[in-house]
Design a protein around this nucleic acid. Sequence first.
RNA 1: GGGGAUGUGGUGUAGUUGGUUAACACGCAGCCCUGUCAAGGCUGAGAUCGCGAGUUCGAGUCUCGUCGUCCCCGCCA
Length: 592
Amino acid sequence: MFRTHYCGEVTDRLVGQDVVLSGWVNTRRDHGGVFFCDLRDITGLVQIVFRPEEVESEDLQKLIHSIRTEYVLRVEGQVCNRLEGAVNPNMNTGDIEVVISNIEILNASKPPVFDIENSRDVAEDVRLKYRYLDLRNPKMQDIFRKRSFFIQAVSDFLKKERFMYVETPILTKSTPEGARDYLVPSRVDNGAFFALPQSPQLFKQLLMVSGFDRYYQIAKCFRDEDLRADRQPEFTQLDIEMSFINEEDIYDVLDRMIKHTFKDFGVNVNTPIPRISYDESMRRFGSDAPDLRFEMELNDLSDIFIDTEFKVFQSAEVVIGLKVNGGSSFSRKDLDLLIAKAKDLGAKGLLWGKYTDNGLESPLSKFEKPDNIDKMIAKLEMEKGDLVLIVSDDKELAQTVLGAIRKHLAKKLGLIDDQDYNFVWVNDFPLLEYNEEECRYFAKHHPFTAPNVSLEELNKMSKDEILSVKSRAYDIVLNGVELGGGSIRIHNIAMQKKVFELLGITESEGREKFGFLLDALEYGTPPHGGIALGIDRLIMLATKTESIRDVIAFPKTQRAACPLTRAPSHVDNTQLMELGLKLKEKLNFENE
RNA sequence: GGGGAUGUGGUGUAGUUGGUUAACACGCAGCCCUGUCAAGGCUGAGAUCGCGAGUUCGAGUCUCGUCGUCCCCGCCA
């Protein structure tokens, strides 16, 4: 028997009892005679004491002094109250200790590459190379415990709501829209490739066609795009789909699910979760994932400057201002940094104005009528000491740039209460967006999202009118981070064909890429819709971690590699030949 | 593809305007030590400063290139 109790659960109620514990040596304090050791397992630490006078065997004494950090031990002993003055209030089990009668080294350990307790301060590539050591850190284990509890709470909730868990293929078909696919070559059909799913989107729709009614899955998804602090090529979604529902049913189930599951994080979520339209969110917050934990809204100043003689304003679609309370204390350098940031985000520039006792100190004063400046100050309700930041540009760009600056400043100025969990639904997205580079329309969500107009209406519309059509898509946003999104799907073949047409997907292309879906739509597809939540991001927010890598047990580095396994790796030619593959010769510029 | 940051014993850091034996803490090894919990004391080992080239009498320090890691833009929901 390896244990009767877990280390962190040895309490003063067990005083006098004999226990068996197993775990790792967290720290050891060897006094030559008496020997202390904090033994660690998944539940925490407990101090074990070895007193030489209580053990006769000299071999055992030798063994004890050979114990090193991270050795794996099995100990037998008696739970005792600690001696007077020896209680450790910083330890959960600090009022007791286990006095050892026997000890067994189950396994030795090389000295750990880094200090387990402080592993989070170690360079990340080292942590990832020795991830199994990094994950011994209790803070890391706590993250994964929360992650696990969340998944279990979700499953419990969805079970009660009559959802069925179904697994969908990992080896599937490459589809044109969306992110770059990860490809897997077929051995049986050389030259053909599977793709790893970017999401189980089409399969869950097919399950609705099958009459499964309500489906969910903890689904691994793969997207071969560049990584970020909150983006991994392989990530996990909570994928949900429901039949015979509309948006309200989605909002209802998700509101209750989020409330239920966030209880585990000690967070009370007020429901119903408020909703905001895409247009309003862009207008007020400059983002389709607004952070509502603080105010500081964007303000459209276009009408004030309608008669401007300032060329920059004349040529722009909109003039948008962002008032920063107390911002006139910003230094020239602060402002330069903001200007650089704005330009980095694609703005042509960023104007500023400090409202002080001398009026508005601003580069704008040279060019703009005093009257207009006064109107702006009035509209923004500026007070002495405030700052205004102005971007004039195309509408979406100006909004996005100021939206990013808004978030940046809120962080910098400490406007955000980090105990706050602010959920919001964003809906009424445009159905389509125009891509300038490829000169065609793309689905804002994906090509299977239902428009919120009927097919008859859609057929009657001009190109311009169609651009203003909204979709039945929705995103759930937490603290300015898009947690997930979904939509009511198209369940009618004619509508699906129409949307493909709008997207420039030809009849034959649609048939080739999505033929199975088009077929299915003709066999009695129920109205349906769903949503997918990014589990990794959700756990990041719930555990207040800065990096998605902290909530994934074995994550990839920015170059999409795994320092632990050294994947991806080269394979030998036999393997390639079986797959009908040959590597392109590497170009060699040795003799320059 | 672009911009930025960074790389010094096992780990975390220091290293002044280029100057000779690269410092400190933790860890590690040996010895001592019976109440510690960052145990303590003594002794010791361990880095040619990511790699390559260059400038220089002399490079951890300057220049260029390269590789890794991280952040951001593009890309991606």
